[in-house]
Design a protein around this nucleic acid. Structure first.
Length: 308
DNA sequence: ACGCCAATAT
DNA sequence: AATATTGGCG
């Protein structure tokens, strides 16, 4: 009889679903806004802005990990009283108006996407709104981008100053950030190589002829920037936005990803500008790249432009 | 309404 | 420290 015990345990253990499958469940059990509205501590996620109608993006970072992309609850609020929020909550729109989104965590990858977007838009067109659209990361707001952009510009300025002052030859991100000028966000910024033309204003570059692919196309639907043809890396992007919640004692949300220690370098690619005809709007970027462990600040930046 | 920036708040 | 928010201005 004893043997059976150990046996059933094994079996039981065997059938345990992977964590990935559990996560989404706990998330969709209650809509973020609802949770926040009701002050439920475990409530994670941001909350969709009160969409008078149905704003395209801006919310719905539900979805779930790589495993099954089928049962996502796309429209958390946009659906109108239908699917997602249909948990039975009645007039839940009232409090939703006052809710605050969690702070966005700019992971190296998210930043990478940002940089790519700016790079491909050209500095002239790289304004918050456009950048945001190009990035097509759901939940990302214009203000998120604007704020980030502001800081990024300062960073670029700093870099220019340095490079023409004596830093020539040594303008590797690490070195620059080490300059100790404004260590604020530099660590983040340093995780993504700065395209050369950012530093040389006034010079035409040869990177992006992107005919302004209005990623907005996807807006009327849900989900994320599922990118081109055989790519599968975008998963990560989803992931970072997905669980905002595990609010650390700080109130921020972390994504279980880069924050820990997973210097996983994926492939470096170039923007995908070819539509795949898959029905999904060809967002552009999709590459993931350097990763940093903000913990041990291990900035590994390998890059195509690397003259190393 | 958007964008930019500096300052300030969290 | 890293983001968000605000206020003043084009």
């Amino acid at each position: 009889m004893r043997e059976e015990d150990s046996n059933w345990f094994s079996k039981w253990e065997d059938e345990l679903p992977p964590p990935e499958e559990l996560m989404p469940l706990s998330q969709s059990l209650i809509t973020p806004d609802l949770a926040l509205a009701f002050n439920i501590p475990s409530a994670h996620h941001q909350t969709p802005p009160p969409p008078p109608s149905h704003p395209p993006q801006s919310t719905a970072l539900s979805s779930q990990p790589n495993s099954s992309a089928e049962f996502d609850s796309p429209e958390l609020s946009g659906a109108g009283g239908g699917g997602g929020g249909g948990s039975g909550a009645a007039g839940s729109d009232e409090p939703a108006r006052t809710l605050k989104r969690p702070r966005l965590v700019w992971t190296p990858q998210l930043h990478k996407r940002f940089v790519d977007a700016v790079a491909h838009l050209g500095i002239k067109n790289a304004v918050p709104k456009t950048i945001m659209q190009l990035m097509s990361v759901d939940g990302l707001t214009r203000e998120n981008v604007a704020s980030h952009l502001q800081k990024y510009r300062l960073y670029l300025k700093r870099m220019q100053g340095i490079s023409n002052n004596g830093g020539a030859g040594n303008n590797s991100p690490a070195a620059l950030s080490a300059s100790g000028m404004d260590p604020a966000t530099d660590h983040l910024f340093a995780t993504s190589p700065v395209p050369a033309h950012f530093l040389h204003p006034g010079r035409p570059n040869s990177e992006h002829f992107l005919p302004f692919v209005p990623v907005a196309a996807m807006q009327h639907h849900h989900q994320m920037p599922v990118v081109g043809p055989g790519q599968h890396h975008h998963q990560q992007l989803q992931q970072q936005f997905r669980h905002f919640g595990s609010s650390p004692p700080n109130g921020q949300f972390e994504n279980p990803f880069m924050r820990q220690s997973q210097p996983q370098v994926q492939r470096i690619g170039t923007p995908v500008h070819s539509s795949n005809g898959s029905g999904v709007p060809p967002a552009f970027g999709e590459d993931l790249e350097s990763a940093t462990a903000t913990n041990g600040r291990k900035v590994l930046t390998l890059f195509p432009t690397g003259d190393d």
